[in-house]
Design a protein around this nucleic acid. Structure first.
Length: 363
DNA sequence: GAGTCGTGGTC
DNA sequence: TGACCAAGACT
């Protein structure tokens, strides 16, 4: 094996030797030194892994691969089926882009993924990181992968004092210098495994690190100080109302607008979520009851406090429904792909409206 | 460049 | 318990 011997302490060689022994076994991965996996599997896993933990992704990856074994099968899937299968994984724009990308690969590229960074970068949902990762891991291209793990490892190796995210261009340039010309896919995965298992954010295991001898942050005895982070901003609280409308054994379920927060997902009827609670009309003329307590949910950039109003209709067919709204059997409410915030609201409503079922759910 | 976009786990 | 964090992309 030939690697860049000019890098500090033969960085790439040490890292690849470590990876040969310590690589994690993952459903979308082939063992070190073996032929790369199907590009479809690499791409699917990389999309799912964006800002999402390995533990969360595993089940979804197996489910998707079993249900849609090829990019052509996924491209032919119904939008609603894919969105429902993605429910709970978060960042739902990824699911929309996943379908758009699969259909573009089939329609514009003969069913095969482009094998270069530039070609992959043009596809929906594939940014700089994912393009480099698929190019390197699936096609062995000489691409530099720079995700959060790599940024942390490099920031520590060089003790970069510039705060994030301003340091990103510097860190990516340093990462490119370290990248070897051989075994690029294994190297990319080795850097991410190192960041995920050794060079972790809070308690790095420096004695076990294969490149500790070349680490400036360790030499300074302050590895966790890097990467330096900018001052954080407070997260505002927004408020809203969920409308739990029963008719017989069914409840009214709506659909979110195609873009934006929770875009395209199934939902419960709700008003706008603003910093001041708005006074909007409920979705039906009925006797509404404010349920005691509230539901709290934290998003990336705001915290949401929901109250739930409940009403029961004698005949759901007598109501003019909003566009996209449907009646869903209560027994099905947990299986229709509700984002977690709405699943919480549904549990809240059920807990206050039916004491018997509270005991069943607790059992 | 700064905001937007989910969720579950950890300490 | 709350803040932080996880294989980013898009606008």
């Amino acid at each position: 094996m030939r690697v860049d011997s000019s890098a500090p302490y033969n960085h790439a060689r040490r890292l690849l030797d470590w990876y040969d022994v310590n690589a994690r076994t993952l459903p979308w991965r082939s063992p070190p030194g073996t032929p790369p996996p199907d590009p479809y599997r690499v791409w699917l896993s990389e999309i799912m892994l964006q800002q999402t933990t390995v533990a969360s992704v595993k089940g979804y990856f197996e489910l998707f691969i079993t249900r849609w074994p090829t990019v052509a099968a996924l491209a032919a899937a119904e939008d609603a089926d894919v969105m429902q299968a993605w429910a709970g994984l978060g960042y739902y724009a990824r699911a929309r882009n996943l379908l758009a990308c699969a259909r573009s690969v089939v329609a514009d590229h003969g069913g095969r993924f482009p094998d270069t960074e530039a070609g992959l970068r043009k596809l929906p949902g594939i940014g700089p990181y994912t393009a480099a990762a698929v190019a390197a891991i699936a096609f062995g291209a000489h691409a530099t992968v720079a995700d959060g793990n790599v940024e942390r490892v490099v920031a520590r190796l060089y003790a970069v004092e510039t705060p994030m995210p301003a340091a990103k261009p510097t860190l990516h340039a340093l990462a490119a210098e370290l990248t070897p010309t051989q075994r690029c896919g294994d190297y990319a995965q080795a850097m991410m495994d190192l960041g995920a298992t050794i060079c972790t954010p809070r308690s790095p295991d420096c004695p076990a690190c294969p490149v500790a001898a070349g680490c400036a942050a360790l030499k300074l005895q302050t590895p966790t100080r890097f990467p330096v982070k900018a001052a954080k901003v407070a997260r505002p609280t927004r408020q809203g109302t969920i409308y739990w409308l029963r008719a017989g054994d069914t409840v009214l379920v709506t659909q979110r607008p195609p873009r934006g927060l929770l875009g395209g997902m199934r939902a419960l009827p709700s008003d706008e979520w603003a910093t001041v609670r708005p006074a909007l009309a409920p979705p039906a003329d009925a006797t509404w009851q404010l349920l005691p307590g509230s539901v709290r949910h934290v998003f990336t950039h705001f915290e949401l406090e929901l109250v739930v109003m409940a009403a029961t209709l004698n005949d759901g067919r007598s109501v003019a429904l909003p566009a996209g709204a449907t009646w869903v059997a209560l027994a099905e409410i947990d299986r229709i792909g509700l984002p977690t915030v709405f699943a919480k609201a549904a549990r809240h409503a059920l807990a206050h409206l039916n004491t018997d079922r509270v005991d069943e759910k607790a059992a």
